[in-house]
Amino acid sequence: MRLIENEDEVLSALKSGDQNAFKTIYLAYYDKLCRYANSLSNNTTNVEDIVQEALMYLWQKREDITINSSLNAYLYRAVYNRFIGEIKKNKRELTLMYELQLSAILEFESFEDSKKEHYLQLLEDIISKLPEKRKEVFVLSKIKNYKYKEIASMLKISERTVENQIRRAFITIRKEVSGLKYIMILAILEFYF
């Protein structure tokens, strides 16, 4: 099924730099590609980024792109490929972060007691600066290892609120410490408690 009646004409105009041709393609496909990408992932913000990147690539490489099948098939494949690329990138980033945290905790374990105490005190000081509710949520989650659902039930708040409080606590931690100290704090939270 073709979404644009004169696809060859629109593609020809696109290749010559006609912005109206690009606008026609964008309007014809954007919503459909977002629905498709959303069927692959439930992260709406990420979905929109992926679709916009695929469409912008079409515009930026318009002179060089050869579409052998249909524009429809090309764009759906482009979105799929970008989605897979995003998954691989996120997986690499998570693996790297996990490796850094594991390395940091192994280093932490090799520290003398005074240096361990320094990092634990630093973490305690940062936590003590959090607003009361945020501190309570953070301690329940990261120190006492309760699940978000359990915390929400205990404190009679939504899981979304728990998630937001944890996110904001990490923003505060990030402002307080940076670089290797931040990774060390994350590692302590992840592996030590």
Rank of each mutant, 00 (worst) to 15 (best):
M154A: 14
M154R: 15
M154Q: 15
M154V: 15
M154D: 14
L155N: 15
L155Q: 14
L155A: 13
L155V: 15
K156M: 09
K156I: 10
K156T: 14
K156A: 10
K156N: 14
I157Q: 13
I157A: 12
I157L: 13
I157F: 12
S158I: 10
E159R: 15
E159I: 15
E159G: 15
R160Y: 02
R160M: 10
R160H: 08
R160A: 11
T161N: 11
T161L: 05
V162P: 08
V162M: 06
V162K: 09
E163C: 12
E163N: 10
E163L: 08
N164F: 00
N164S: 07
N164H: 01
N164V: 03
Q165E: 13
Q165F: 02
Q165P: 09
Q165H: 11
I166D: 07
I166Y: 00
R167I: 04
R167E: 06
R167S: 13
R167P: 04
R167V: 08
R168P: 02
R168A: 01
R168N: 09
R168D: 02
A169E: 07
A169D: 03
A169F: 00
F170A: 06
F170L: 05
I171D: 04
I171E: 08
I171K: 09
I171A: 06
T172R: 01
T172E: 01
T172H: 04
T172L: 00
I173L: 03
I173P: 02
I173D: 02
I173G: 03
R174T: 07
R174W: 00
R174D: 02
K175Y: 04
K175M: 06
E176T: 11
E176I: 11
E176N: 13
S178L: 02
S178K: 04
S178Y: 01
G179M: 06
G179Y: 02
G179N: 06
L180V: 07
L180E: 05
L180H: 04
L180R: 11
L180Q: 09
K181F: 02
K181Y: 05
Y182N: 09
Y182M: 11
Y182H: 09
I183N: 12
I183A: 10
I183K: 14
